[in-house]
Amino acid sequence: MTDPAGPFADRAHREADLGEVGRLLAEAHGAADIGRGCTSNLSLDEVLLLHAVGLEPATVVTATACTTIPPGSWTWSTGQVQAADYAFSRAFLLARNQMRAEAAQIGAMGVVAVDIELQLSPHRYLVVMLGTAVRAASDGHGGSHFPVRYPSPFLCDLSARDFVVLSRSGWYPIDLVGGASYVHAPRRGVGAALGQVRQNVELTNFTETLYAARELAMQRIQEDIAEVGGTGLLDMRFVDETVPFAGHVVAFRAYGTAVKLLADTHTHPDLQLVVPLDDPVVGFEATSLDGQR
């Protein structure tokens, strides 16, 4: 028989059973808002973590830059597709500067968790950045204790969580950096170049072309790191890809957050070894038995 008062009858009528959290929630119900509003793409967990290092989110900031690539740039030739290389670096730079200007305008210390969207089409390069501007936490206990003062707002594509963990070790983000290299594959077909289809052999001219292009993208990102005053680059996204509308072009794009050790020394975090007891999600598909996968 079901209890007519409900399965939680006992609990519902005894406030003493409410935990600390339940009591706070009951008090909060209908209470006035005492904070100042903000909009952020961070999760609440990340906001709480930021508070732990003396920062709070201010608002979402976004920047868009789109640059031109002239017609004919993709015609199969040799060496770099210079118009594409240039369009990328200009668009990246414009978006970055716009982001920083937006952050500076609202008096933010920097922007974390920047999401970077790169979109290449035959005639243009689009770069869209969106992240959460952060400032020194003003409410609560004794103001800010974030140890670094930046001359102009920093930008980083690290998550707020990574940002907090990194800063506790003495390293801080400086700026977003990027480099790209678009290169034409050597013109002659492999078979034609060799005439010996049965052999295993390295195609040295092909190797050198792609090697050079990849090194160039890395060289450009390193120049960018030096330019913004960073000493390292972490969590770099290095993307090799073919260009959908120009199959003979190989693209190398690298971008990430330049960082610097701003504390006197690197501080090692205290580590604790843990074994999570969560079960991995195990799936089994019967169709795999029919060989129909």
Binding site: L24, D33, I34, L48, G54, D139, G140, R168, Q272, V274
Partner: peptide
Amino acid sequence: RRVRPTMPIAAPVTTV
């Protein structure tokens, strides 16, 4: 809505 002043959470424990 913020209904009480900020209480910074304890520093997180790093685990491997």
